[in-house]
Design a protein around this nucleic acid. Sequence first.
DNA 1: TATTGTTATACTCTATAACTATA
DNA 2: TATAGTTATAGAGTATAACAATA
Lengths: 165, 165
Amino acid sequence: MSHTEADGDQGSTRRGSGPGVSPPPSEWPTGRLLSAAARRVGRGGGAYLAGWSLTHASLPVLAVLVGGSRSQRELARELHVTEQTTSRMLAGLERIGYVNREPHAADRRRRTVALTDAGWRALDALNDPGAIEMLVGSALDAEQLSELRRLLVQLVEAGPSGGNA
Amino acid sequence: MSHTEADGDQGSTRRGSGPGVSPPPSEWPTGRLLSAAARRVGRGGGAYLAGWSLTHASLPVLAVLVGGSRSQRELARELHVTEQTTSRMLAGLERIGYVNREPHAADRRRRTVALTDAGWRALDALNDPGAIEMLVGSALDAEQLSELRRLLVQLVEAGPSGGNA
DNA sequence: TATTGTTATACTCTATAACTATA
DNA sequence: TATAGTTATAGAGTATAACAATA
């Protein structure tokens, strides 16, 4: 202890692994890159989505509902989250008026979740290519963006947790 | 309201925007793709990281500390989170033994944060190329992975929220 | 008994506001 | 007064466990 070498300045690293200063992103392991990208989306994108009171978790809910109304259990399965989490998110989305939940006519255990007009409006705004693309557009040009999209699609489609998606 | 047209089956979409069924990822807006990728990392990666009691937020803390010990305020700035959040995360990391915090000799307001041996071991394990790469390796081949890395690096380096990173 | 959904509880990450201790 | 860090409080997302209502 008492290795007060470093705090204002950089200081020594106490081990071989440390390059001495923060390694540049290009040398990060992919895990950290993904993590950073996720957190970047999670903040930058989050601030953007926050304009519509949405998050990375709630936006996919609406996106799934574009395909048609569903039961909560179905939603949970498609979103890969538990039914309890789905329940909570839907409560929030219903509170802000983006979805509504009506009792199923035939099976009264079920609740049919559907987008409201406000939900559609929010999605329309977020689907505006110029809007969200701008989030990464400052960092990537059109071709790079399209390549990133391709890879992300592959990643999302073939993911270890997304075998059924 | 009262559009109970759809639940068990697909049903109509009640508007022009809806394709009728869930659109494939390739047609998602980039925002949703990033969102999904982030959540995928957030779960698949999360489960992986959980083996070391780490998360997407706590791993970057360790990664930054590779560059040398720092004050908490400096860490917060580099991580782009508040000092309060940093404080909490560090408390957790200290509790599980990955970092230690010692009072600064000269300025007793400060606490110098450093990786412990256990922290280094965890990072070593996570830096194993085969380990984390496997998270996405099932979905992407080597060349695609390297391309994804390039784009992510650019995204992370030039991000709107990462102007000072 | 099985299915659908909820509430209870807990944990992490995040933020803002208010606080202590030190300078 | 300014700086470093913490605690208080709040809210989202996540999970498991226990529960109610319906089938």
